[in-house]
């Protein structure tokens, strides 16, 4: 039996009001993107705790995307500014741990930016494909 080609598993945290809409628009607009993305909807990017990101990696994600509304557009005033601060610490921490920087991204995507969402997923997928599976992926998880 030949091995199926490996595609990176990407966990994308999307906020209800913007980036989740962006993911939806990408689908409706039929922009090509790999099917291996797992979208997790949260009410606001500010809800994304570093703990959720750790959990995604420990369960086998090859990359994790933290996404939300553009700065100024957050539906809870400044949730995404808090996300930005938390993200800084998270990014530094995972880099020190030795995780390749390309496996973690922060991006602001509005509900109408379907193409932007699809391009983002495609870019990350291509980069992570080169890196191979995440070193934190548990044995037995593809």
């Amino acid at each position: 039996m030949t091995e199926r080609e490996w595609t990176p598993k990407i966990v994308a945290f999307c906020c209800n009001w913007c980036s989740y809409g962006g993911a939806d628009t990408a689908g409706m607009g039929r922009f090509q993107q790999p099917a291996s993305t797992r979208v997790i909807r949260v009410m606001c990017s500010g809800r994304i705790d570093p703990l959720h990101v750790f959990n995604a990696f420990l369960e086998g994600a090859d990359a994790v995307l933290v996404t939300g509304c553009h700065i100024g557009d957050c539906h809870y005033v400044n949730g995404n500014e808090k996300t930005q601060v938390k993200y800084q610490f998270l990014e530094e921490m995972l880099q020190q741990l030795g995780l390749e920087p390309d496996r973690l991204h922060l991006n602001w995507i509005s509900a109408s930016e379907g193409e932007r969402f699809a391009n983002f997923i495609n870019e990350v997928t291509a980069k992570v494909k080169e890196l191979g599976p995440s070193p934190l992926k548990p044995a037995g998880v593809r």
């Binding site: 570093p50 703990l51 420990l58 610490f89 998270l90 530094e92």
Partner: peptide, 23 residues
């Protein structure tokens, strides 16, 4: 609270959280 002994993770959630929180 979010670290379970039965998780067979490559790195413990307990330590990852502490490494970040105490930075």
């Amino acid at each position: 609270m979010f670290h379970s002994l039965v998780d067979n993770y490559k790195m413990s959630m307990y330590h990852m959280v502490r490494l970040l929180h105490l930075s």
